[in-house]
Computed example of a mutant assay.
Amino acid sequence: MSEPVVVTALFIPVEGKLDEVIAALRPAIAAVHEEEGCELYAINQHPDGTVLMIEKWTSTDLLDIHGAGPAVAALNASLEGLLARPVEVTRLAPIPAGTPMQGEL
């Protein structure tokens, strides 16, 4: 198994579609929380109307399985026509610092 990985996914809704994007994301959150390796899978709204998903996985291997799984496929289908551009996904390697509970996502 590989090291833990943090992921951000930026969703930019088509103008007037923010509520629909959030509604599409909600069922995915519950489904993904049940997946092996998921430590964090949460959405956050920016004041500019974009939505940032923050994820943490125990390994890149399990993240890759998630990415090819049914929850992501269903989410992609439910977002069709709601986004101004493709989702921007970034994988990050945690750098622990400070206290164990506060210094790492």
Rank of each mutant, 00 (worst) to 15 (best):
V72C: 10
L83V: 09
G37K: 05
E55L: 03
A74N: 05
A71Q: 15
E55Y: 01
S59G: 10
L25G: 08
E34S: 06
E36S: 12
I54L: 12
S59Y: 09
Q45M: 11
H46M: 13
L92N: 14
L82F: 02
G81E: 05
A73Y: 02
A28V: 09
P27N: 00
A71F: 05
P86D: 08
T90E: 12
H66N: 01
L75K: 03
G69W: 09
V32Q: 04
D48M: 10
P70D: 15
P70K: 14
A77P: 07
L25I: 11
V87F: 00
A68L: 10
R85K: 15
L75D: 01
H46F: 06
L79V: 02
W57V: 04
S78C: 11
H66M: 01
T50G: 04
L82E: 02
I54N: 02
A42Y: 05
Y41S: 12
C38Y: 00
H33M: 13
L63A: 07
L75M: 11
E80Q: 11
A31M: 09
Q45E: 13
P27R: 00
L52G: 12
H66A: 01
A84S: 15
D48N: 14
S59W: 10
P70Y: 09
T90Q: 09
V87H: 00
L25V: 14
P70F: 10
A30V: 11
A68F: 06
D48E: 12
I65R: 07
A28C: 14
N44F: 11
Q45P: 05
L83S: 07
A77Y: 02
I43M: 04
G49K: 05
D61S: 13
V51A: 08
L82G: 02
L25H: 05
D61V: 15
T50W: 04
E34T: 07
N76Y: 10
T58G: 06
L25P: 08
T90D: 10
N76P: 07
I43G: 06
A30E: 15
V72F: 06
A74D: 02
A31C: 06
L83D: 08
L82P: 02
R91V: 09
V72H: 03
R85Q: 15
V72I: 14
M53V: 12
P47C: 09
A31S: 13
V32W: 00
T50N: 10
A42G: 08
E80A: 15
R85N: 13
A73Q: 11
E80Y: 07
V51L: 10
K56G: 01
Q45R: 14
H46Y: 12
V32C: 06
L79G: 00
E55P: 04
A42L: 12
G49D: 04
D61K: 14
E39K: 06
L92P: 08
E36N: 08
